[in-house]
């Protein structure tokens, strides 16, 4: 079977959707983890509370994987019959991946900053955990919207 440029572009899009938010989440979770480790060194009882905050910037990576998976499914990679995409079709898929790829990367890091500040809240006033979570979750909205845009575009494309 011949490989088309369209297929390459589509896969490139899927790859970007996975690795960019993945990088963002990895950095973000790492950042919050560092701050959390600092708190737990002095006060081990705060482990579960800080763990929740650490998990928050991890979702972007999951959204990215999800988008990548939808691409693979749509272009038939998972079923074993890779569709013979034209260059334009490939570009369309690539474009559809951009929202979550870019927003995922940046929002994960911004969210991590908010969550790391939330760790500071937990250190001083553990009863206010919910507020720390809410501040961080406000950032995630934009990752969710980007994910939605990417997925709706992918479902809307006619590829066969």
């Amino acid at each position: 079977m011949e490989i088309t440029l369209g297929q390459v572009l589509a896969l490139l899009g899927a790859a970007m959707a996975v690795f960019l938010p993945g990088i963002g989440s990895a950095r973000g979770v790492g950042m919050v983890g560092e701050a959390a480790a600092g708190v737990v060194t002095e006060d081990p009882s705060k482990f579960s509370q800080t763990l929740i905050l650490q998990a928050l910037p991890g979702t972007q990576g999951i959204y990215g994987l999800l988008t990548g998976f939808v691409v693979m499914q749509r272009i038939g990679l998972l079923g074993g019959n890779l569709l013979p995409l034209t260059t334009y079709q490939g570009l369309l898929v690539f474009a559809a991946c951009l929202p979550i790829a870019v927003v995922g990367l940046l929002s994960a890091i911004s969210q991590a900053r908010a969550a790391a500040a939330g760790v500071g809240i937990v250190a001083k006033r553990p009863e206010e955990l919910a507020k720390g979570i809410t501040y961080a979750a406000m950032v995630e909205t934009y990752a969710v919207l980007a994910l939605l845009a990417s997925i709706l575009m992918l479902f809307g494309l006619r590829l066969s």
Binding site: I62, Y63, L65, L66, F69, V70, T141, V144, L145, L147, L148, I151
Partner: peptide, 20 residues
């Protein structure tokens, strides 16, 4: 109103990851 689109997005996320 647009903010409620997360209902769909998070629902999709669960399903797709389960499939993965």
């Amino acid at each position: 109103v647009l903010s409620y689109s997360r209902l769909l997005a998070l629902g999709l996320a669960t399903g797709v990851i389960a499939t993965v």
